[in-house]
């Protein structure tokens, strides 16, 4: 029993440290590649590590009219809540450490917690610009949660028609049974639409261009984060890095859970190594197309446009995907 617990703690530390480091590296790649696409040299890939170290030694200013305890607590809540998500996701081809203790529905709720923490931190800052940013973040959440929920529910429901009685919302079950090979042509089109919806929700979840509306440096001077500095800002920075890994891993687990070890006939340690490497590439590809390419190609949209975009076309795409999957199963 104590050996099992020790093993779980050890694995937990690896997940926590590994997820954070990975997020920082992907953040560095994001900045480097975005710069290269724009004809700039860009910072070194290790730049996010320097940024966090620098933030930790900078002064941690709390504005005069801020609600101090809330203002200081929210960066910690944001980081801790987003880090818990790593434990419910299959990472590197391995089963989720807490796979039996939480499913996709829990992940849907947990994804909202870091954003709510940022909203509360923004309101607690006692600054008009941070308040406007916090209001925008709330509207963003209300906008993208619906298509995200439709995507998750459609995948779980479709799998339930093939595997009645199974825990179809469990990430382990979803990752072990990719739907691409199960459904017919209509279902494949439905899955493509759901995948597209998730890829558009991803930059919104991460508050990246064109959905960096709550921060909007050129309009509201960083908005929700305008007053944060020093070590509090470092916590939000780390939370953002981990959330990038979470969204990439979630997309991979739901739509591309395949490994390479079986294909090349490797097992054991070498099989794990090649599966981990393949997982890192898959997460990178998701981040590359959902975040890096999109933020280089588009300008920031307005909050009203974002609400309309998610409630009409993107919800429409995800509902159409759900309808096609339903038709595929019953027609």
């Amino acid at each position: 029993m104590s050996g099992t617990l020790l093993n779980a703690v050890w694995q937990g530390i690896v997940i926590l440290v590994g997820g954070t480091l990975l997020g920082m590296i992907y953040k560095g790649l994001d900045r480097k590649l975005a710069a290269q696409m724009q004809g700039r040299i860009g910072p070194p890939i290790r730049q996010p590590f320097f940024d966090v170290i620098k933030l930790m030694v900078k002064e941690n200013v709390v504005p005069d009219h801020a609600v101090g305890w809330l203002y200081n607590l929210m960066p910690l809540l944001s980081l801790a809540s987003v880090a818990t998500l790593l434990f419910y996701l299959p990472l590197g081809g391995f089963q989720p450490l807490l796979g039996g203790f939480g499913d996709l529905i829990l992940i849907l709720y947990l994804l909202a917690v870091p954003s709510i923490a940022m909203v509360l931190g923004g309101f607690a800052a006692g600054s008009p610009l941070a308040t406007v940013g916090a209001q925008r973040e709330m509207v963003m959440m209300m906008a993208y949660e619906f298509p995200l929920a439709i995507t998750f529910l459609s995948l779980g429901w479709t799998l339930s028609t093939f595997m009645p009685g199974a825990h179809v919302f469990s990430l382990s079950v979803l990752a072990a049974n990719p739907l691409w090979g199960m459904v017919g042509p209509l279902g494949v089109i439905g899955l493509i639409l759901l995948f597209a919806a998730l890829m558009i929700v991803t930059p919104a979840e991460l508050a990246k261009i064109p959905f960096d509306i709550p921060e909007a440096e050129t309009e509201i001077a960083g908005g929700i984060l305008a007053e944060y500095s020093g070590r509090n800002m470092a916590m939000f920075y780390l939370a953002d890095a981990i959330k990038m890994v979470v969204m990439g891993s979630l997309t991979v687990a739901l739509f591309f859970p395949y490994g390479l070890s079986g294909l090349v006939g490797l097992s054991g340690a070498w099989g794990s190594v090649i599966d981990v490497a393949f997982y890192l590439v898959k997460v990178f590809v998701v981040i590359f197309f959902a975040v890096i390419v999109v933020r280089v190609a588009f300008a920031r949209i307005k909050i009203g446009q974002a609400a309309r975009l998610f409630w009409l076309p993107i919800t429409g795409i995800s509902l159409l995907g759900m309808l096609l999957l339903t038709l595929d199963r019953f027609v």
Partner: peptide, 12 residues
Amino acid sequence: FGAWNPIAWALL
């Protein structure tokens, strides 16, 4: 269809 253990999450 799935499971959630709030105590496990709270401890984590």
